[in-house]
């Protein structure tokens, strides 16, 4: 017989090669993050002296963060506006549409469902050029609303697809009880669907938000005024500047990542769950 303690150290010994490999991979994976953090406090002198190792706090160049903050914050504000507004409307529209499909088999239901599903098969690549001209004709070029509206349209299919399944799983009695009490469909959505589907709506919120937060192609095409830049376009312009001060650039990168880091801290569980839900989308 082995005591539990022996057993534990045995397991540890057996798993050691696995731990080593995983840790090595993780180290490499996290290396960019490390470089960003430690370079963000260096000025050109300390950077040129040694770019690999962190420096002690007394030599930190706090001015980098002031630069990064002033540069990125207006972009962050624009991005938050676009991503939050876009995500809220995406989900409002999607909950309504999913309710339509899940509640009754209405005439034309099947056809309309096919209209939505077909989009999943259409690769988006052919869209971007005509989309630009369409936005131009709608006088939406160089506005944040262009990003919001296109974002809303782009998020529909996935959200409706997931939400329909969840709404169909709600016991029918709940809807019937609400109906007997004289609730309209709108009231049923608000009083039955929203509470019952709150967790999945939270997860979808994060997924849709992340997608819109990270988008840079459409903003790059649509936006011209620096006042309107979202984080993505802002960083692209920063990258294009000639005189490179890597400390300042990394500090700007760090500030650009901050909003996500803060969100991540509060919604870690939803994050991981959301990703797994995204995994099951196909």
């Amino acid at each position: 017989m082995t005591s539990p303690k022996d057993n534990k150290s045995q397991i540890w010994k057996k798993d050691l090669p696995k731990h080593t490999f995983i840790l090595l991979v993780l180290l490499l994976e996290l290396f960019p993050l490390y470089m960003m953090l430690q370079i963000s406090v260096k000025n050109n002198v300390t950077f040129n002296a040694n770019q690999w190792l962190p420096i002690t706090p007394d030599k930190w160049e706090w001015g980098n963060f002031v630069f990064g903050y002033n540069l990125i914050m207006p972009y962050v504000a624009n991005t938050v506006f676009v991503a939050v507004t876009g995500t809220v409307f995406t989900l409002v529209f999607a909950v309504f549409a999913a309710y339509f499909f899940a509640r009754y088999k209405m005439p034309l239901s099947g056809f309309l469902w096919a209209v939505f599903l077909l989009i999943m098969l259409i690769p988006g690549v052919a869209n971007i050029v005509p989309l630009f001209v369409l936005l131009k004709n709608m006088n939406l070029l160089n506005t944040l609303w262009a990003l919001i509206i296109v974002g809303i349209a782009g998020g529909q299919v996935f959200a409706i697809f997931i939400l329909r399944n969840f709404i169909e799983d709600i016991p029918k009695d709940l809807f019937e009880a609400a109906e007997i009490d004289g609730a309209s469909h709108l009231q049923q959505v608000i009083n039955v669907v929203l509470p019952m589907c709150a967790p999945i709506i939270g997860t979808l919120f994060i997924l849709e938000f992340l997608g819109k937060w990270n988008d840079f192609l459409l903003p790059l095409i649509v936006l011209r005024d620096q006042d309107l830049f979202t984080i993505g376009v802002g960083l692209i312009y920063l990258d294009g500047e000639y005189n490179k001060d890597y400390g300042k650039i990394m500090a700007a990168f760090f500030i650009a990542s901050l909003p996500l880091i803060i969100i991540f801290m509060f919604t870690m569980k939803l994050f991981v769950k959301g990703l797994s839900a995204g995994a099951l989308k196909g």
Binding site: E29, L33, M36, I236, F253, S257, F271, L275
Partner: peptide, 11 residues
């Protein structure tokens, strides 16, 4: 493993 995701892909 999820940690790097907090940095925007662009960064």
């Amino acid at each position: 493993l999820v940690l790097p995701m907090i940095v925007p892909g662009l960064v």
